[in-house]
Design a protein around this nucleic acid. Structure first.
Lengths: 375, 375
DNA sequence: AATAAATGCCGAAACGTTTTGGCAAAATTG
DNA sequence: CAATTTTGCCAAAACGTTTCGGCATTTATT
């Protein structure tokens, strides 16, 4: 058992032999096909039929006699024939493929969006390609470009945070796309968008905090180039106004939807002389950052500070305290996005857009009434 | 069970739904191309050159004059031409694409594997397709089939747990594949495999528990149809033997690498009359399940029970206690798998296989010396 | 200056499918 | 039984690239 143990750093590249030999070794003289894969042509030969008949049998339409059909099946099985989707897509001018690009696959919310899109697509006989931009426009652009070159039939897009102002038409051309979850404040769109009703979600969440007695609430929201973040902030403010509380601008911080900015801004809020009694984070990563900040400062949650997050994790209940969050129907967002996109692609009449799904406030342990003011 | 479609109020965008009319508007009578995308042919026309010259310029090889080249660039930019990778792949009999299939994208370990593979591939001018089998062979097979039909140049495979006995050749044909992380006990392989040295990783981890004074250690390992799990169990036993401890078979439980089986088996271990003082879980999901079980039973960790896991999470430090784990270089596993696969695809001489990377024991708070026996 | 070689470009043939129009034979009709 | 339709199959033309062999020019070599 010769086991090579490589240091993870080891860059050792064992190099190149001659690339391609001068001669192309044509081994089989029987069939014209030179290479790797068996083609419909070889199936035809084996079944004693013509190429077009094989194709007809494959797309089981048309007139193919039962006998011929079974002969073809036999040949296919025996040769282990697999259709070439490149050729198919080229000829058909249709790939039966959609792409889904999300900003962060390590965020389970987006994994669920992807899975939703995948499941719907599968049921509609489409396959999906997934991209993971890691919140970087450059990566997103590269993915979109690649999707374009592969001629996907459409894309479900959750833009990276720094990509919200980018124009899509130059990148995607005629390929339709739909926004899921996030969407740009500027209304560049193609098929529409699906997400949640961010305003009412944030409004409800904030009302919950108010109902507990909180009057001084900090919010760590996303960048307002995102319509999503803007809406959540809007909902927050709306709830405050409804309760006749004047929002304190210094309590409103714009993060970047990642752990770091959640942490940074929570630190900032918590170390003020007049600190809030509750913090509302408008996405899950920032909530995690805030959670960490609270732990670091040794503050007791929820006794000293309440924390309200967005999006649920499957491991939310393992944290102490367990996290109270606004749960979004991630999977449904993905499913509906895929559905709308595919409907559009297939020329079916579109449903109204934007589609806004309802959220749910999952009350757990991280929020409680604030301590007495002078405690 | 979210409520669906609530359009209620249209917040920012009223969105014109001017999508496709019933008729297909054939606007351009000039070019032969009927449809969506601009082709190299139209670029040729615009640049006043032949198709083959455009191609030559594109693959910037060959003899193309500077003047012609810039004229072509101009036409490309103006028409927003994007090469069609379907046609390209068909002609070239090579897609410059590899696929990566992992069993669970909601497990961050695999996200990192994917990202590693993606980053290496990008640097080598390959793109990657990712599949997420959710631990189900059926889904994995469908993905592999799709990859085959797309004629990917190779696949990095982390098999689903119930897929370890399946033969690949019938599915993938001549497409080469490499195992990453998990591998089947039966040595069906193509390019080789890359992972960690599971035996020594588990051995080291176990020795650590022994060094703390634990003598009664439960292990929740994966199914032994997985070579990976078998190796980890082997390392565990090896460490016990080296310490002259006779392994207690009833302390060895085979889980399924998911939260549920971690939970179930931990419950079982913890509710025995003679319960272990430490539990070793050989993957991260099972560790989480065990963690939950401990919390549920209201046991104090590490005082009453030590817990040692596999794989790190980015949020491991948010749990209380923080988790002591064996950290695997997930990203490197992905990178090296991609490297070996691409090397193979391009006919370079392969490095020795299997490639086994070193792990690291991350000591945090979930393990401590056991309480006095009679406490 | 005559020849050879390099340069710059092009037409046509693939790559593996699907589709269209056609052609026989069989089945149906009058 | 003749005329028609249906059935079963096939050949060839696309789809958008790359590559191979040519063919003119120009440039280099005697």
């Amino acid at each position: 058992m010769a086991q090579t143990v490589l240091n993870s750093r080891a860059p050792s590249i064992l190099v190149a032999m001659a690339t391609s030999g001068g001669k192309h070794p044509r081994s089989d003289s029987k069939t014209k096909n030179s290479g790797q894969h068996i083609t419909i042509r070889e199936v035809a030969k084996a079944a004693g039929a013509s190429v077009s008949t094989i194709s007809a049998a494959l797309n089981n339409s048309d007139y193919v006699s039962a006998e011929m059909r079974s002969r073809i099946q036999g040949a296919i099985k025996q040769l282990k024939y697999r259709p070439n989707d490149l050729a198919r897509g080229l000829r058909l001018q249709k790939t039966h493929t959609i792409a889904v690009i999300v900003p962060d696959l390590s965020n389970n919310f987006y994994v669920d969006v992807v899975r939703g899109a995948k499941d719907y697509s599968t049921s509609a006989n489409y396959t999906v390609l997934v991209g993971d931009s890691r919140e970087k426009w450059d990566e997103e652009r590269d993915y979109l470009d690649s999707f374009h070159r592969r001629r996907v039939d459409g894309v479900v897009r959750v833009p990276a945070m720094d990509a919200l102002t980018k124009k899509m038409k130059p990148i995607l051309g005629n390929i339709p796309w739909i926004y899921a979850d996030r969407y740009p404040a500027s209304g560049d769109s193609s098929v529409g968008r699906v997400g949640i009703d961010n305003v009412v979600a944030a409004d409800n969440a904030t009302r919950y905090l108010l109902s507990l007695g909180h009057r001084s609430i900090g919010i760590i929201s996303g960048d307002i180039s995102s319509g999503t973040s803007a809406d959540r902030l809007e909902g927050f403010l709306q709830a405050l106004r409804a309760a006749n509380i004047r929002p304190d601008r210094s309590m409103i911080l714009a993060g970047h939807n990642d752990i770091e900015s959640g942490h940074k801004h929570a630190m900032q809020l918590l170390q003020r002389a007049q600190r809030p009694t509750a913090i509302f984070c408008t996405n899950n990563m920032m909530a995690l950052g805030a959670f960490a900040a609270i732990q670091e400062l040794g503050m007791r949650c929820p006794e000293e500070i309440s924390l309200l997050g967005f999006d649920d994790f499957y491991w939310s209940t393992l944290l102490r305290p367990t996290l109270t969050v606004v749960r979004q129907p991630a999977r449904e967002v993905g499913m509906i996005a895929a559905r709308m996109l595919i409907d559009h692609v297939e020329g079916r009449s579109p449903i109204e857009t934007p589609v806004l799904l309802a959220t749910q406030l999952i009350v757990r342990d991280s929020c409680s009434p604030p301590r007495q003011m002078n405690a």
